[in-house]
């Protein structure tokens, strides 16, 4: 068995597993199970990245996607008490429509790929250390660098964090008087002890 054959077999094995877990992600009736399947898809994608000589990316994938995003998803499944919930089966019509759209998309796309000449595969050697090359590209402020999106995404992460906290926050901090700003009516309804003896808050809530 040559190296090429091993790679070929590996590709099909991981691809098959990936597709299996992807389908499990979208069909599992227990959401927690779907999240675990999603985790497997993402880990297997990290395997793909290794095969494509993108080792650094594989690491990022596992750290951020599996270690971060999937964990957040699992948290939310628990916070919205969907853990034990069996999702109702989608109606047959909806399933059929979904399958039709998915197969239609796959058929069209695959047909296009099979007939497209993507140009000869270039033969250059990949950079010895992809991490170093990516790091250099991210901070390169020349005509081939990506320093602008690197700065933009820092702002995006900050804005997402601030926005996320603002939306998910339960009640105003203790230092903030309840009689302030536009915060009043909605907030009061979330402090149960106050609710009973606060006719005004209750009235505006009703």
């Amino acid at each position: 068995m040559s190296e090429g054959a091993v790679e070929t077999i590996l590709f099909y094995a991981i691809a098959a597993m990936s597709l299996f877990f992807a389908i499990a992600t979208v069909t599992a009736r227990r959401l927690l199970r779907a999240a675990v399947a999603l985790m497997f898809v993402l880990v297997l994608s990290a395997g793909f990245y290794v095969m494509l000589a993108a080792e650094f990316l594989a690491g990022v994938q596992v750290l951020v996607y599996v270690g971060g995003i999937v964990v957040v998803i699992v948290f939310v499944i628990m916070l919205t008490s969907s853990v034990d919930l069996l999702e109702e089966r989608p109606p047959l019509l909806r399933k059929a429509l979904g399958a039709l759209a998915a197969i239609g998309f796959f058929g069209t796309t695959a047909a296009v790929y099979l007939t497209t000449d993507f140009g000869a595969a270039a033969d250059a050697a990949p950079p010895a250390e992809s991490a170093r090359a990516i790091g250099a590209a991210l901070l390169d402020y020349g005509p081939h660098g990506y320093v602008v999106p690197f700065e933009v995404i820092s702002l995006l992460l900050l804005a997402a964090l601030v926005g996320g906290i603002a939306v998910a926050r339960r009640s105003p901090p203790p230092s903030q008087p309840l009689t302030s700003g536009g915060d009043l009516p909605g907030e009061v309804s979330f402090t149960p002890p106050k609710r009973q003896n606060d006719p005004e808050g209750g009235a505006s809530h009703a």
Binding site: A15, L19, A22, V26, R94, A101, T109, A110, F118
Partner: peptide, 30 residues
């Protein structure tokens, strides 16, 4: 590329059939 198309199509199916918003967002991650 056919593999990426297949994974994308599976995600598409999930978006169209999932009822829970968390499920839909998982499909979007795909």
């Amino acid at each position: 590329m056919v593999l990426t198309a297949a994974l994308f199509a599976v995600g598409l199916y999930g978006i169209l059939t999932r009822r829970s918003a968390v499920g839909v967002l998982m499909a979007v991650e795909l």
